[in-house]
Amino acid sequence: MRTTHRRRTTALAATGTAALALVLTACGGNPADSGTASAAAPAPTTAAQSTPAATGATTSAGTAPNTAAPSGAKTGAGAGAGTSTPSARPTGATQAPADPAAASAPLCAVKDVAISAALQDGPPYTHLVLTAKNTSGHSCRLSEYPRIRFLESHRENVPAVAKSRPAAPVVLTAGAPAYALVKLSDGGVHENNEPVTAFSVALDGGSGPATVKAPGNGGIAVDPAAWATGYWTYELRNGADDF
């Protein structure tokens, strides 16, 4: 009897468990399985929310500032290359002499002339006069202006004054002189003034520069910021040679 009762109790328990399982299945399945499936499924709004973020990243990259150098920098550099010191050599054509024989005269070389210097006017001495006397025994032509270098530290020639250019080239017959006015400084004592006891003068005819002794016991004082030279002329002319 006891064995039969136990079998009935076990059968009833199994039947109740099966019935409970059927009820749960009908109501939606195991709650644990339902929760896992819900977590694995993507939320409908997740993709929609991620789309603007991705779009924004693409737009930001597309609008990144250009890091190339602006064109103005190149222009500025060019402009910088475009601002150069003009030549001191005056411009303008020199008229040919009326005498054909004079036009064909060779250029005077340094060996053809004797060049000397003398102070002009009184103190303060601001100008000197160069004299070039033809000692060659034949006619020769002085071209433009003397190429003067007062200081070894300044390799450029003393600049010429355009208004002193004569209307025609200077042609010297044997024994004839020509003159050029040269400005040394603005006068007085100045920190830029430098003493000079001798200087060089070159001519377009070649044969090297001549060394000219500076006038005065102590030489002359020159100012690189103020010096200038006139063209060779037959005589000094008021107005044209005043500078």
Score class of each variant (00 low, 15 high):
R155S: 14
G208I: 06
S116R: 11
R6V: 11
S104F: 01
A64K: 11
P42I: 08
S71Q: 12
R237V: 15
L203A: 06
V201I: 10
Q49W: 06
I220Y: 01
T59D: 08
A79L: 12
K133R: 15
A79R: 09
T83W: 02
R141G: 05
A118C: 00
L22Q: 05
G205K: 05
P209Q: 03
T83A: 15
D121L: 09
A43S: 11
T46L: 13
P106Q: 08
K74F: 12
P123V: 09
A81E: 06
Y234H: 13
L128Y: 02
Y145K: 02
E194N: 04
H190A: 15
T197G: 03
A54L: 12
V113D: 00
G76A: 15
K183C: 07
D242H: 01
L172H: 05
G28P: 06
T9F: 08
A53Q: 11
L24K: 01
N66E: 08
R89Q: 08
S185A: 09
T85P: 15
N157S: 09
P166I: 07
E191L: 10
A114L: 13
D186N: 14
V161D: 04
L130I: 06
E191Y: 08
G187D: 02
K213G: 07
G122T: 13
G35I: 09
A109S: 14
E194W: 01
T83E: 05
P97I: 05
K111N: 13
Y145W: 14
P159G: 15
T15R: 07
P44A: 14
R2E: 12
T59G: 13
T51H: 03
T15I: 11
I148H: 03
Y145G: 02
L236T: 13
G187K: 03
K133L: 10
A41F: 06
A117M: 04
A114K: 15
V170D: 01
L203M: 08
L203C: 07
A226Q: 13
G76L: 14
A61I: 08
T135Y: 00
G76W: 05
N193Y: 00
Q95N: 11
H154M: 10
A210N: 03
R2P: 09
A103S: 14
A18I: 11
S207V: 01
T25A: 15
P106R: 12
W232H: 05
H190W: 08
G206Q: 07
E235K: 13
G122M: 04
T126Y: 00
G206K: 08
E194A: 13
R237C: 01
P70N: 08
S87M: 00
G72I: 12
P90A: 05
V158K: 03
G188E: 01
S139T: 12
A168V: 14
A103R: 14
A32M: 09
S143C: 00
V161N: 03
T85A: 13
A176D: 09
A198S: 15
L107P: 00
P123L: 09
A81P: 04
T63P: 00
V161K: 03
N30V: 09
T9R: 15
P224H: 02
A61R: 11
H127Y: 12
G82Q: 09
H154A: 12
V170L: 04
P123Q: 10
P106G: 13
P70W: 00
P100R: 06
T126A: 04
T9I: 14
V189T: 14
L22D: 05
P100C: 04
F243A: 10
E144I: 01
W232E: 05
A101E: 12
E191W: 09
A114R: 13
G122Q: 10
S84F: 04
A198M: 04
T233C: 06
S136D: 09
A19E: 01
